[in-house]
């Protein structure tokens, strides 16, 4: 077992543990904090994949924006759940069965697949090539159209969120 493998196991354990805490934590605020830890763990997992750009992006977007948004929402709506001690709904055994069944199914499928053995591909000198990623996103031969559609989606989501949450009818 190499050092990197140990590091990965640590990261995975921490991430999965905090993910469990996200769904198990009693208070929403704590769930959000655990979520942040889980997201940082995922960023670390990206780092072990030598995708440093996405590792940093993960922190910037998820921790810097999405998690803060979630915390905001949790704060704004905190009164609602205070008098209800149960955090899971009545159907949670069925949900556990569904999630567990899915995991079992996935693991079973993995056990029959032999494509794991392929070694990681070589990266150019100096890690991933961000310039290539940028070109792929903006070149007409690449993914220009999906990229533009994604940006359009963001704008639409932004306007929609403002409209929905802004209560413009007043």
């Amino acid at each position: 077992m190499t050092g990197l493998q140990v590091v990965f196991l640590l990261i995975g354990a921490v991430t999965l543990a905090s993910a469990v805490m996200v769904v198990a934590a009693k208070r929403v605020m704590h769930a959000a904090l655990w979520l942040i830890l889980a997201l940082v763990g995922v960023a670390a997992a990206y780092a072990t994949l030598e995708a440093s750009f996405f590792a940093v992006m993960q922190v910037a977007v998820y921790v810097g924006a999405i998690a803060i948004l979630i915390i905001f929402a949790a704060m704004l709506t905190r009164r609602s759940m205070e008098d209800d001690p149960a955090r899971l709904n009545k159907g949670w055994p069925a949900a556990l069965l569904a999630a567990g069944g899915l995991l079992a199914g996935l693991v079973y499928l993995f056990s029959r697949w032999t494509g794991f053995s392929s070694p990681a591909r070589a990266l150019p000198e100096g890690g991933e090539n961000i310039a290539a990623l940028g070109l792929a996103l903006t070149a007409p031969e690449g993914f220009l159209v999906p990229f533009e559609v994604a940006s359009l989606l963001l704008v639409a989501a932004m306007i929609g969120a403002i409209y929905v949450a802004g209560d413009l009818r007043k």
């Binding site: 942040i36 940093v56 992006m57 922190v59 910037a60 921790v63 810097g64 924006a65 998690a67 803060i68 915390i71």
Partner: peptide, 10 residues
Amino acid sequence: IIAAGGLGAL
């Protein structure tokens, strides 16, 4: 740097 700045808000 930008990502680290996001932690301050937190």
